[in-house]
Design a protein around this nucleic acid. Sequence first.
RNA 1: GGUUCCGUAGCUCAGCUGGAUAGAGCAUCAGAUUUCUAAUCUGACGGUCACAGGUUCGAAUCCUGUCGGGAUCACCA
Length: 613
Amino acid sequence: MNEMYKLKKDISEAINILTGKDIQAESLTLTPTKKEFEGDYTLLAFPLARYFGKKPEDAAEIIGDYLKNNLEIIEDYNVIKGFLNLSFTDKYWHTSLNEMISNQNYGKGEHKSKKVMVEYSSPNTNKPLHLGHIRNILLGWSVSQVLEKAGYDVIKTQIVNDRGIAICKSMLAWQKWGKGVTPESSGKKGDFLVGDFYVLFDKKFNDEYLEWQNSDIALDIYKENGKEISKEKFFNNYKNEYFNKFSILGAEAREMLLKWEQKDEEVIKLWEMMNGWVLQGFEETFDKLGVYFDKSYFESQTYQSGKSIVDEGLRKSVFYKQSDGSVWINLEDAGMDKKLVLRSDGTSVYITQDMGTADLRFKDFGTEKMIYVVGDEQEYHFKVLFEIMKRLERPYARDMYHLSYGMVELPTGKMKSREGKVVDADDLIAEVINEAEKSAKERGELENTTKEERGEIYEKIGMAALKFFILKVNPKRRMIFNPEESVDLQGQTGPYIQNAFVRIKSILRKTEKTETKNFDNYKEINKYEKSLISTLSGYPDIIQQAANELEPSLIANFAYDLAKKYHKFYSEIRVLGAKNIEAKNFRIALSNMVADILEDAMNLLGIKMPERM
RNA sequence: GGUUCCGUAGCUCAGCUGGAUAGAGCAUCAGAUUUCUAAUCUGACGGUCACAGGUUCGAAUCCUGUCGGGAUCACCA
């Protein structure tokens, strides 16, 4: 157990002796003292007053007096209103730091022998990854890291949506207008090339649609169904129906999908080739983002896999069949609707696949907990999925969780990939690294490094800026992403934290590393050092909390707070120029510990630390 | 309309398991470098914590309602 808990336990015992009551340590509120007041930690006496039958101030006075006389680590106390401010002895701080340093795995949670799956990324193979994917990927990766740190066994997966009508649109456009172009021949990254054809399809389709809108059939349909709204608005809403009923291109795309499902040799060949281009492109982007997957699932392989579960559900009477042959589940008693799980033609829908994939994962890995990192527009879908798995009595069903996050919007509005109105992941990555390079060159701290080293450093800084910018905010919040602001390198940013680390490394390079762990002779410990130790001592709790709440932003804010306190310490206190050897050794040990924790915490966000910058 | 998420400084966000005078960063203005990397530090300016009730010794935090914004409620994925 950590220092804070031990202290709480001691205090609760003291109160029990004083009052004869049985107060639990967990019920006490003990927080770092606000900087305006004297003291290190503050105990709230308001809730305790009634056990004493006295005013909060008087109760605080009694507790404080007792603690000062009976606890070795309490040096002094003062009472302001119902707040009992406690000051600790130097020995407490020495011991605290010492214990952190001695613990090789400081912050790591106990091994929980529980397998957790985290699904994230889940791209479609008809266009490149964009800003929305970046938030998803960074969140998923970071949550995986945090869970692992907290002591879980984590399996990182993605499901690649590599089939369906969307990819057929790209394929058709390439076939019709591509003139055999390839990534090699065009020098274009595969996912971008395929994405271009997706956009091209939409353009040609729109042209076709506009022309059709003046035809007699179209006008008849409008007269019949759309009297009350403008022509423009009506046809805007009618687009999907046009695609399915009248469009020539639509018919061709659907025919292609049908051929794909029948495993038509030519179509499969085209599909394999274009998917290969895209997946190759994705790999490069994942690599740049520093993420990977333990296992990738492909929808082309799993899209039929839920059908046996449908049969099982029918046998167990969880599902029911309608006269047209479609299969449903009624979730009205759980506050949801009736939901289709199998079409009347016997084909799967989205949720059928997800049912199958969940079982498949359980079979593959024995995952006891499943976390899906998916945008909040799918909240209802997952609510339904989880309820279905519960009713099918899956062992993992009670521990399925949808980590939903808000959409990323640009200052100019929503992103629309069909219209090419997106921020591509690759472009953004290149931009932030470029920005880091510019800024680093102005500073001129890297003159004694090789070109390769410099390149690595620019990358680390740029990626830190981007990743921290995205991960510091609560996932639930919808975020408006301003490409210019994301590359800020000053203030509450990734590079600010890296800079604290770099300052420490610079100090450490200039001195012999001491192995001293006995700090008893260091007498003039100051408030900057205390605040660093006290922040460091909160790290294990932050990890557990971040794991429980699946909240990487807690880690990000912790790292920022620690870096901020170090920068402050650095500007006020000399390390190498300390007055005596005890102070110097203590500060070196403390700085080293701060660097370790900064690096560790940032690693949980997928951010790498440079030695210099 | 039902469900759900969000609403805190000009902007981007912390704080939400109830506690002291609501905190950071950006932007603006003023300062700090003969001394360990100034991507730093210090100060000033900036608030009806959307609004109204309720619970409490105490509410940004909990409850109810209202307003505003997003998402969702397909034989799409």
